[in-house]
């Protein structure tokens, strides 16, 4: 968010979040590895460790993937979204440990390089039943590690939001690869239907939540527009009283989501998309005179769309006018950073 990047900008909520995350991971590994050692005294430690790490990582990936749609469906899930980066990095760390153990156990100390062995030890690419499942996991691990390494805002700023977002959408490719990795690997060797049921429940949960969230977004889009423009290009957006104080009304114009915020009797229009991670800025609030994004708390001045110093984020702003007791919007964005007086509407109108 700022010029001087820190590895983690700690605050009390992040510490609580990470504490619970660490507790969950420790309990999960303890239950799997400790419980496994007690229930199966013949099992080797490395096998339990390998399986425990893989299972924990795969489970955590499901949680990471579910948080986004859950927060779209109900904003009360947003505290889990706020620090999702730490959950993703934890998941990637568990996956790396699983991958490293697998590489060491199955491919190292042989007659070819372990990384070469990963791709040549099972040549049955022509058979679904015998398909090499380990390269699928390796490909997913590369994506996950790449995402973890670029998850910091430093990379978001330097890669630009669209590139960063596209890169991080690869998580769905990684997820697909991992489902195949599990289905064509351990599920073929194990006999318990409970394991199949667990994986199926995970895939179903992730898929259903994404569908429900997409349907909600689609309904919201249908409600907000697109609104027709008048001959001069201005759009009749709404009546002033349609917007609650401290909140915004989002309209769809010229293919963009634009948020008209109200602060008392003053109205300002900004892009409804946060510059940080494309968050839903239009669902934010005006607090202490600044528009605040609900995802990560990024702030913007309603007058110019700029973040307060020393931050440099800026979102497009749009001109407003009052005509016939209605708020009109010009959907052509003003030059970035243009300082514009808010539209003032007399109390009787608002």
């Amino acid at each position: 968010m700022g010029h001087d990047y820190q590895a983690v900008q700690w605050n009390p909520q992040k510490k609580r979040y990470d504490g619970l995350l660490a507790l969950g991971v420790i309990l999960f590994l303890g239950a799997f590895i400790g419980g496994g050692a007690a229930l199966f005294p013949e099992a080797t430690a490395e096998t339990l460790l390998l399986r425990g790490l893989g299972t924990a990582s795969f489970f955590l990936l499901h949680v990471v993937l579910c948080i986004g749609p859950l927060a779209r469906i109900d904003t009360r899930w947003l505290p889990l979204l706020y620090n999702r980066r730490h959950m993703g990095v934890t998941m990637a760390s568990l996956a790396m440990a699983h991958g490293a153990f697998a590489l060491l156990q199955f491919h190292a100390f042989g007659d070819v390089n372990a990384f070469v062995s990963l791709f040549v030890s099972n040549p049955r690419w022509d058979s679904l039943a015998q398909f090499p499942f380990q390269p699928l996991g390796a490909a997913a691990l590369v994506i996950i590690v790449l995402m973890a390494c670029t998850s910091h805002d430093f990379w978001l700023a330097n890669l630009t939001a669209p590139v960063w977002k596209a890169l991080h959408m690869l998580v769905y490719v990684a997820y697909g690869l991992l489902v195949l990795h599990v289905a064509l690997g351990v599920l073929q060797a194990e006999t318990s239907p409970l394991l199949v049921a667990l994986v199926a429940a995970g895939v179903l949960t992730v898929g259903t939540l994404h569908l429900v969230a997409a349907r909600k977004d689609s309904c919201d889009d249908a409600e907000m527009g697109p609104l027709p423009a008048a001959d001069d290009g201005w759009i009749d957006a709404c009546a002033p009283e349609d917007i609650e104080d401290g909140r915004a009304k989002i309209i769809l114009a010229a293919g963009e989501r634009i948020a008209i915020f109200r602060s008392g009797n003053e109205f300002s229009a900004l892009s409804a998309v946060c510059q940080h991670q494309n968050g839903p800025l239009g669902e934010g609030r005006i607090i202490d005179g600044l528009v605040v994004c609900p995802w990560h708390g990024y702030q913007y001045k309603p007058r110019c769309g700029q973040s307060p110093e020393p931050f440099q984020e800026v979102v497009p702003t749009f001109a407003l006018r009052l005509q016939g007791g209605r708020v009109y919007l010009n959907p052509r964005p003003l030059p970035l950073g243009t300082d514009t007086d808010p539209l003032h509407v007399e109390t009787s109108h608002a």
Binding site: L20, T55, F59, L80, L198
Partner: peptide
């Protein structure tokens, strides 16, 4: 929900762990 999630994680860990084939 966070504590429910941790309980769910424990349940998943327990089911996955106990569903393994016996070891030689």
């Amino acid at each position: 929900r966070a504590f429910a999630l941790i309980l769910g994680a424990l349940l998943v860990a327990a089911v996955a762990m106990t569903s393994q084939r016996p070891f030689a």
